[in-house]
Simulated assay, not measured.
Amino acid sequence: MIRNEIKATPIFSDHMPIRVLEKKAGRYVLETEFTDYHLNAAGSVHGGMLAAFLDCGLAGGGASSVNDGEGRYGITVTMTVNFIRGAGPGLMRCEAGVTGGGRATKFVEAKLFDGGVGPVASATGTVRVIELG
């Protein structure tokens, strides 16, 4: 009998590595580098990738509002995305902040910036904050 090797399952951040720049009191700032791998047929970063990055910002923003995010995780319950303009490969920053909510349910806004004029996309959402393990 041959024993199969167990391989770790890839996780989301294997495909879009994220660096957290700030995580405190309901404010969450992160960045990632989009490459040619993330482009659509029109040569812009695929909207799904932008939405996924906004989702990370919303969830992290919500979690950061409780104990500065220590031991907390945000689960996006609802999300509305507004695509403002196309963006090519390169460094992108997401700035998110809590706008309201209660003890465990937070309302969060996020915007994506690529160094061009104004934001690339924005989102609003509802985030449920849970305690990790």
Rank of each mutant, 00 (worst) to 15 (best):
residue 85 R to W: 13
residue 65 S to I: 14
residue 56 C to M: 06
residue 32 T to N: 07
residue 94 C to R: 00
residue 92 M to F: 11
residue 68 D to N: 15
residue 59 A to G: 11
residue 96 A to E: 03
residue 29 V to M: 02
residue 51 A to N: 03
residue 39 L to M: 14
residue 6 I to P: 07
residue 23 K to P: 00
residue 119 P to R: 02
residue 76 T to W: 02
residue 70 E to K: 14
residue 105 T to S: 10
residue 75 I to S: 11
residue 64 S to E: 04
residue 74 G to H: 01
residue 99 T to M: 11
residue 97 G to V: 10
residue 76 T to K: 02
residue 42 A to N: 11
residue 15 H to D: 01
residue 42 A to G: 08
residue 130 I to S: 08
residue 82 N to K: 12
residue 133 G to W: 07
residue 82 N to W: 02
residue 104 A to F: 10
residue 9 T to S: 06
residue 16 M to S: 06
residue 55 D to V: 05
residue 15 H to R: 01
residue 109 E to Q: 14
residue 128 R to V: 06
residue 34 F to W: 08
residue 105 T to F: 12
residue 97 G to W: 12
residue 128 R to W: 11
residue 85 R to P: 13
residue 114 D to I: 11
residue 1 M to F: 11
residue 102 G to W: 08
residue 33 E to P: 01
residue 102 G to S: 13
residue 111 K to Y: 08
residue 132 L to K: 15
residue 96 A to S: 15
residue 128 R to D: 07
residue 133 G to K: 15
residue 85 R to I: 10
residue 34 F to I: 09
residue 118 G to E: 04
residue 29 V to W: 01
residue 123 A to T: 11
residue 43 G to K: 13
residue 34 F to M: 14
residue 69 G to L: 04
residue 37 Y to A: 05
residue 10 P to N: 03
residue 34 F to H: 08
residue 114 D to K: 05
residue 54 L to Y: 02
residue 60 G to F: 02
residue 16 M to N: 06
residue 110 A to H: 02
residue 79 M to H: 07
residue 32 T to R: 04
residue 99 T to S: 13
residue 25 A to T: 06
residue 109 E to A: 12
residue 21 L to M: 14
residue 8 A to D: 13
